[in-house]
């Protein structure tokens, strides 16, 4: 899969004309932290698959904070974005630790799918996968789960099929990955 460019990560930013500087500053900041963000995700979380999502979350938080500050320089925006990104990495590392540190490794071979601890782990897994998903995407996933077709879901949400599928894509990929991991006993 081709990775999106830093520009593509900023596509969701919509600001009034007087705040165009912020869009440029965010784009500059994303480009600056791009490589480092991937390295951090690899070293702290063990893989890079969550990097894009974590950058998007950091962008959202940075925009919220910077809308009140018209004096921030591109360098300051970069620092803020990096700080918020690291915050998200720490948050996920703690969440991962909560999962990883449950029980002892020798218990794993005897753990059945109906073991109470396994049930708790599964719940945590899905909670992590689905955390921070916007309400519209949550609702779309529920509708798809109830076997509505994408064109029907788009009609219910008042958007286009392509748009809602794009918005659900990341969550679906993560669910797909999780189910694959479970299948292979990871």
């Amino acid at each position: 899969m081709l990775l999106p460019s830093p520009s593509e990560l900023c596509w969701g930013i919509k600001l009034p004309p007087e705040q165009k500087w912020l869009e440029k500053a965010i784009h500059f900041a994303v480009s600056n932290i791009w490589q480092r963000a991937h390295r951090i995700a690899r070293s702290q979380l063990g893989d890079e698959s969550q990097t894009l999502e974590m950058i998007e979350i950091a962008i959202g938080k940075a925009v919220d904070r910077l809308q009140l500050n018209s004096q921030a320089s591109p360098e300051e925006v970069t620092q803020l974005l990096e700080r918020l990104y690291l915050q998200e990495v720490r948050h996920r590392r703690k969440a991962n630790n909560r999962i990883v540190l449950v029980g002892a490794s020798e218990d794993l071979s005897s753990t059945s799918t109906h073991h109470p601890q396994s049930l708790v782990d599964s719940a945590i897994d899905l909670d992590i996968i689905l955390q921070n998903i916007p309400p519209e995407v949550r609702f779309a996933l529920l509708l798809r789960y109830s076997q509505s077709r994408w064109n029907e879901i788009a009609a219910v949400l008042g958007t286009t099929e392509a748009s809602i599928r794009l918005r659900c894509k990341r969550a679906l990929n993560r669910i797909r990955q999780k189910l694959e991991d479970k299948k292979h006993g990871l």
Binding site: I13, E23, L166
Partner: peptide
């Protein structure tokens, strides 16, 4: 190709996906 701002919204982007 996605622009950072201007008038290109999510739906317009998504149509090209």
């Amino acid at each position: 190709t996605v622009a950072i701002a201007d008038s290109i919204g999510k739906d317009a982007v998504a149509e090209n996906q």
